[in-house]
Structure formats: structure tokens, C-alpha cells
Nucleic acid binder design. Structure first.
Lengths: 163, 163
DNA sequence: CTTCCAAAGTTCATCCTACGAACTCAGGCT
DNA sequence: AGCCTGAGTTCGTAGGATGAACTTTGGAAG
């Protein structure tokens, strides 16, 4: 393995991790759906009511119902009952800790779109409690922010070699 | 703004940003598809050839063909010709800078699945050139790593109020 | 030069899911 | 009791996914 740097285009840099062992594939099985991501967007906004999500997204009722059920089953959303005085009991879908833990991924997607897709910036910002703006970044164990070009993927094989 | 902290469940924290202006929605229009994310996984691995992707993912040819075309049109992948000695010309799909810029989002999804979904850790790691491991994190403008709980979403309205 | 082969698609019939409209159901108000 | 509204379910239809079979292309082998 003298020069693994520039393999032929199309030549894999290392053996593929089978889908069953791939964490990204597991994530995709939950969030690999356009509506799911948009529903999570609503939940991040604090929009938790069925009809309100429907109004915002224009999603068919049956699909929204199905996705909400899946997201509750997967533990990303919780269906909570509440009641405003003088109104009937309602249910709302709220992010659980597991769902909220997706914020870094959603933030990274937002930033990617803002920088790399046509269209203006979003009026929505993520803000820390201290007032500072938040960004999704890759950081190395030494605490440095690194760019996507400075990174390589390695498979840690059981025999200790690094592929 | 005395106590915006705990609105009723289901009461939106601020007006929804219309989908047309939402950067996440724009991202979703490109990557809001399970196969697309898995294809990008392959590309990150360096797997760029049609049949190899097909073998890894078990994706139908027609779908793979369609998604690759879209990803090339969207500028995330480039179709490059190459040739190994003694073999015919081939084409491979390689990440462009725009595609590679999705690494933070993909890394964040991986880490989320690793921490919050059942199943073991992935053998795949992201490594900096210096050898240190890479993580996707939210950082504030002051350089601190912050958790998802410490964050709120704000809409910067044109009149300067912060919703 | 002809034949053979493999990679990378395309085409096709079938199936599943998304879609939008209409319908249902329940709780609380009047 | 009757009505209203939010939150679904049901339904027929249309569009996209699927897997198998077919086509194309460029080079290698004979």
C-alpha cells in the first residue's frame, strides 16, 4: 500500500461496508424520506399539530398520519395531549431527545443548501442561548474545525489494519 | 417576550417559514430520498461504478440510472471516463466539491444513528489527515461545541424583531 | 475481421405507494 | 340534542418503484 492516494476513478478506496452494518443506512431507514424530514422541520419549529403541519407542508392527510405514526414508533416524536382553556383536548407531536439529536444533521443540511444550492438564505437561524449563531461543523479530536476535503473514510477491520 | 420558554404543546414557537423559502426544503428536494443518500454513501466510499453500486445496494438498475442522472444534474456527482490498462473505457461517478460538502450532514446522520438507533457501531470511521477522528458537531460563533438542547430556532423578520 | 463478453443502461409488465377528495369519529361548546 | 372542529380513515386513481429481459457499446480473443 504505497500510494493509496489516487486510485483509478471508480476504483473503490476500500471494501464496502454491507448495508446491514452501515449506520448511515440505518439512519436512512428512518429519515430517508422527504416528508419525514419536512415533518421534523415542523417539529423543530414547534409546529406539532396535525392540521398545522398539513397547512404548512401541503402533505396528504394519509401520508402525514403514516409518517407521524412511524416517527412516534421510532421514538423521534412523542404524541402528547394538552388543552388550552375553553378548548377541547388536543394532541401534539413533540420532538423527543432522540428526535432533537437530529438537529446537527438538519443544521448541516440547511447550511449545505444555503451554500451550494441556488436560492437565497433562510430567515431561520439557529441560535445558542448565549445569543451566538450556531453552525454545523466537522471537528477533529484535537478540537479543530476541518473541511470536507481534509477527510478520508477508513474501515477499521477486525485484524487491526486500516484498509 | 417574558416567557416564551414553554408554550402549550402544539403551539408553534414562531410563524412557519414557507417551504419555498426554506433551505431545508431545498436540501430535501435533492437528498430527500433513501436511494440518493445510499448512493452518496457509495460515492464517499469511492465506489463510483454503476454495477458496483448496484451490487452493494441492491438497487434496481432503472432507479440507479435515474438517481445518478439527477445527482449529476444537481452537480453532486460528476461522470468521469477512465480506463485501466487492458480493459475498456469505463465511467465512474465521483463526488464533486458540492457533493463532498454534504459530508458534515452525512457524518451527523451516521453519528445520530450510532447513538440513537439500535445496532452496533459502524466499522467505518472518518479520519482527519492528521490521524484524528472526526465528529459532526454544532459549534457557536464563540467556538464552543453546543448540544441540541441548548439551541433555539429564531426567524429574523425584516423588521428586525427576533420572533 | 468476426465473434464474444461485460458494463451500463433502457424497456416492459406488475405492484405498491402517494395523492386528493370524501367520509368518519370524538370531544366539547351552545 | 345538535353543531363544530381537529384528527384522522377510506377510497379510487395516477405515478413511481421493482425485477426481468432486452439493447448498446467498446474492447479482447480467435
Amino acid at each position: 500500500m504505497e500510494k493509496p492516494e489516487k486510485p483509478h476513478p471508480g476504483e473503490a478506496r476500500h471494501a464496502a461496508v454491507p448495508l446491514a452494518e452501515c449506520t448511515l443506512a440505518r439512519a436512512v431507514s428512518v429519515i430517508g424520506d422527504a416528508w419525514v424530514l419536512l415533518i421534523l422541520r415542523e417539529a423543530v419549529y414547534g409546529v406539532g399539530r396535525f392540521e398545522e403541519m398539513r397547512d404548512d407542508l401541503g402533505i396528504p392527510r394519509a401520508v402525514l398520519s403514516d409518517r407521524l405514526r412511524r416517527l412516534v414508533e421510532a421514538g423521534l416524536l412523542a404524541r402528547v395531549a394538552y388543552r388550552e382553556p375553553g378548548r377541547r383536548t388536543h394532541h401534539a407531536y413533540e420532538l423527543t431527545a432522540r428526535g432533537r439529536a437530529l438537529l446537527p444533521a438538519l443544521a448541516a443540511l440547511r447550511e449545505w443548501a444555503e451554500e451550494h444550492l441556488p436560492g437565497g438564505p433562510s430567515p431561520l437561524k439557529l441560535r445558542h442561548h448565549c445569543g451566538a449563531q450556531i453552525h454545523a461543523r466537522l471537528v477533529c479530536d484535537h478540537g479543530h474545525v476541518v473541511g470536507p476535503e481534509e477527510i478520508e473514510t477508513v474501515v477499521e477491520r477486525s485484524d487491526g489494519a486500516t484498509g
